[in-house]
Design a binder for these strands. Structure first.
Lengths: 340, 340
DNA sequence: TTGTAAGCGTTATCAA
DNA sequence: TTGATAACGCTTACAA
């Protein structure tokens, strides 16, 4: 391993001088020595020891991404939304010259560990951490960026989207296309800020058009036989004609279940998703969905993080990104028969 | 920040004693002191400083996953195969008590940095690194696990699958179902060991049945208008009836292009994919594909890594996992008309 | 069973 | 513009 000292000896200077050069503290070192040292370091294949750096400077150029580890069969990175976000984050963080660790955490002690153990410069939280936020802030003074949080704690920096508006748009689109009996498919809403707001936007908009969602039109993610439920809904004298779901990946499940149950999308059942994953444009029929810009979210998360690292006194801010309707082919217009 | 020294003072012992306790070097410390120290550490919220540890012990409980950064529009983690592998790897590595960094790398110097800078205990390479392997091994003495490598360097530890066999199975399945004119869709094969072997297995099997793949039946990933190409192939006096592709995600593209071109899968065109991503069972028709066990691959990669960390003299081994045919609904039997 | 001393590679601080 | 020295928090090696 090549150290500062090795280079210093070869160059006939002190290791401090080398340190200054390696850190680009030019202006403090003469042009000539600087050049010479840089060259020697290059030749010897010097790579700075980040551990030593972190120890001596009490901070590191290291960011940790904290993901919630639901359970062992449900890996966060198997979720396309999450992997897409993390991928973009990784790219951005690299561009800023930082390194990235990923930490799956199950409980509070694991979060603490991941924050303190490596003297990380900052952290990005991916997933639901609303309950821990208060304590997290008291216990740590490092910049933390949350995503999609609806925590009541005002002093956190968060990047999210307008979930309520997304639900609104979906409802409005169903209404505009002549759907009067619609359903919802998603996780039980109350334990998740994001889902709850999407659902609220959806339900409220329907209600103001005089339409209510009866309990039997709520399909839980854990439902045993989705196809059978769909069949039940889509039959009878007043069949459900449209279903809104809280994530595109759930829409894919609906497509599959519908196919096997002999229900045609969108002729028998229209579907609106949420996220606009790249797959959504590829499936048949292409999925009409509420689009959010995941990459932009990651970009902003990284930007906020850097800002907070450089200026620790930056006030907390909550950024809400827009959503938009990606109009494709999974909703049937029941007025003129067209498919969007 | 709570340090060993803080705990030591509170407990009235030396920091070495605390260190021993924290590292579970029980047997070297009396039961009583051990208990007491553990309790104090707990109360004070002690978290070991990994940087200091790494520095002092010249090794860290840190693994780096090295991913190839193709270009900025093509993030490795957007690839479902990669994110699935990495997700499982993250889980496994956590279970072993190690931390995980991810490094996107573009050139050799970036690999070197990611290996040396943090004194990592080991590295897992995801993607193609065949050219660098030789130099990598000379420059570094840490355990390195490669995946899907067809490097000619014999002394590397690798986990891969039987790509050739996968191609073989696809060809055989087409033949068994009465397809005589088939095509291939994938990246230009020569620059990628995995693709090349899949293709070879495919082509060789066809050839021994007296069938050859004319150049116009090779579709490049970069083709401008996939739908038009498909249309061209599927028309004429001797239309292509089946297409094999090197990854499920490419099969999805085929589905989409076929749909828009008015080509029915599998009635007009049968499709066989590779990987068996979770989406493949969900799309319509469900995709017949060559399945590989991505999670198992990650599990084995982690296992090999740990073995190499604990016993540095472990000889190199190349593990080849089986593939199998996931028979679903995207291949039509041209003999009896059934769809698999 | 416990402690002392030295040192890991770097940076902060102060002095020259 | 440069260098000496003392940390940073921990572990290794050895001593008691």
């Amino acid at each position: 391993m090549v150290t500062l000292k090795d280079i210093a000896e070869k160059a006939g200077v002190s290791s401090m001088t080398v340190s200054r050069v390696m850190n680009g503290k030019t202006g403090a070192v003469s042009q000539a020595t600087s050049e010479r040292i840089r060259k020697i370091a290059q030749e010897m294949g010097y790579v700075p020891n980040s551990s030593a750096r972190a120890l001596a400077s009490r901070s590191s150029r290291l960011i940790t991404a904290i993901l919630q580890e639901y359970d062992e069969d449900n890996n966060p990175l198997e979720d396309r939304y999450t992997s897409c976000f993390l991928g973009e984050l990784a790219l951005q963080i690299k561009q800023e010259g930082y390194d990235l660790m990923i930490h799956y955490v199950k409980d509070y002690s694991e979060i603490t560990y991941s924050l303190k153990s490596w003297n990380v410069a900052g952290a990005v939280f991916i997933g639901m951490f609303d309950e821990s936020i208060q304590k997290l802030q008291e216990d740590n003074r490092i910049p933390m960026i949350f995503t999609d949080s609806y925590s009541s704690v005002r002093s956190i920096t968060n990047v999210g989207i307008d979930d309520y508006r997304g639900g609104e748009m979906a409802a409005k689109y169903f209404l505009d296309n002549g759907h009067r009996n619609v359903a919802f498919y998603g996780p039980e809403a109350l334990d998740n800020g994001v889902v709850m707001h999407r659902l609220q936007g959806f339900v409220t908009t329907l209600r103001s058009a005089g339409i209510s969602l009866p309990p039997e039109n709520f399909l839980d993610l854990g439902v045993k036989d989705l196809g059978a439920e769909l069949k039940r809904m889509c039959s009878g004298s007043d069949p459900v004609t449209g279903i809104f779901t809280t994530a595109d990946k759930c829409a894919y499940q609906i497509y599959s279940a519908a196919y096997h149950a002999g229900i045609r999308v969108p002729d028998d059942l229209s579907v609106i998703g949420f996220d606009d994953l790249d797959m959504s444009a590829l499936i048949t029929p292409p999925l009409t969905t509420i689009r959010q810009d995941i990459k932009k979210k990651a970009e902003i998360a990284c930007g906020l993080l850097m800002k907070n690292i450089k200026e620790p006194e930056t006030p907390a801010e909550n950024i809400v990104l827009r959503v938009e309707l990606a109009e494709r082919g999974s909703v049937k217009n029941r007025i003129n028969g067209e498919k969007h």
